[in-house]
């Protein structure tokens, strides 16, 4: 039936380009329509994922607003229209409770763990000047060992963790450090998990790095963030 014998001849370059162009156009059309078709759903999914992560670390929050803090110390709301990217600006989320009062600030931190970067989202409580809790965004730590940071009771008892700024609001009064299990003496120290020291240290470093960078930019403007805009 399908015995249309193709003669063993070489195709001309023009024909090749014509066919390839046609197929490329067809494929381009398919990709664009898939992109258009899923655009809204993907955006919505991303928003829900961020919201869920923030609500997890700030349990009292009911709505969130995304901001960026520029190196100059300005805080700009990231609206639906999108803001012009400022170089060096750091993103953070302000969580508001049901009365539209500021419930906490969620910041993302990254540090090298045992097998890859550990990305965490931690909540800063402006009233108490503490880190009230954290959640893992991505981690490839060894299951059963490194992922204990989310379930180990002794480790979770480290929070709230003191994160006071110095009087001139330039940096943390005491850098957040992870110490060996059982040797925590100060409220800004993190008591590591035995056997998962490297992951525990990564959490401490991630919080410290992000807090050192971001808190001096945010804290002077806290009054502007108090109410949901």
């Amino acid at each position: 039936m399908t015995s249309a014998v193709i003669p063993p001849q070489t195709t001309s370059a023009v024909a090749m380009i014509r066919t390839l162009g046609l197929i490329a156009a067809l494929c381009g059309f398919i990709i664009v329509s898939a992109y258009q078709g899923t655009y809204d759903a993907v955006r919505e999914n991303k928003r829900i994922a961020v919201e869920r992560a923030v609500f997890k670390v700030i349990p009292t929050a009911r709505s969130i607003v995304e901001y960026v803090a520029s190196p100059a110390g300005e805080i700009v709301k990231v609206g639906a229209g999108g803001t012009a990217a400022v170089s060096g600006a750091v993103k953070f989320y302000a969580g508001y409770d049901k009365d539209n009062k500021l419930a906490g600030i969620a910041v993302e931190g990254v540090a090298k763990g045992y097998s890859d970067n550990v990305r965490i989202l931690f909540a800063y409580d402006p009233a108490a000047q503490t880190v009230s809790g954290f959640g893992v965004v991505t981690s490839r730590e060894t299951p059963g060992i490194g992922d204990k940071i989310l379930v180990d009771k002794n480790f979770l008892a480290n929070f709230p963790l003191e994160a006071k700024l110095t009087a001139d609001l330039k940096k943390l009064a005491n850098a957040i450090v992870t110490v060996k299990h059982g040797s925590k003496t100060n409220p800004w120290e993190i008591d590591a998990i035995t056997g998962a020291t490297i992951t525990s240290r990564a959490v401490g470093r991630a919080i410290n790095d992000a807090a050192q960078l971001l808190l001096p930019r945010i804290v002077p403007h806290l009054s502007a963030l108090k109410e949901k805009p």
Binding site: T11, I23, C27, I30, I31, Y35
Partner: peptide, 30 residues
């Protein structure tokens, strides 16, 4: 499809559908 460029064509076609499935999965569950 000219047989001289068939592999390139197949790859373009496969890559197209991989991109589509990539968007679809993002839309279904992040």
């Amino acid at each position: 499809i000219p047989k001289e460029v068939r592999i390139a064509t197949y790859i373009v076609i496969i890559a197209t559908f991989v991109t589509v499935v990539d968007y679809l999965i993002q839309a279904i569950s992040l």
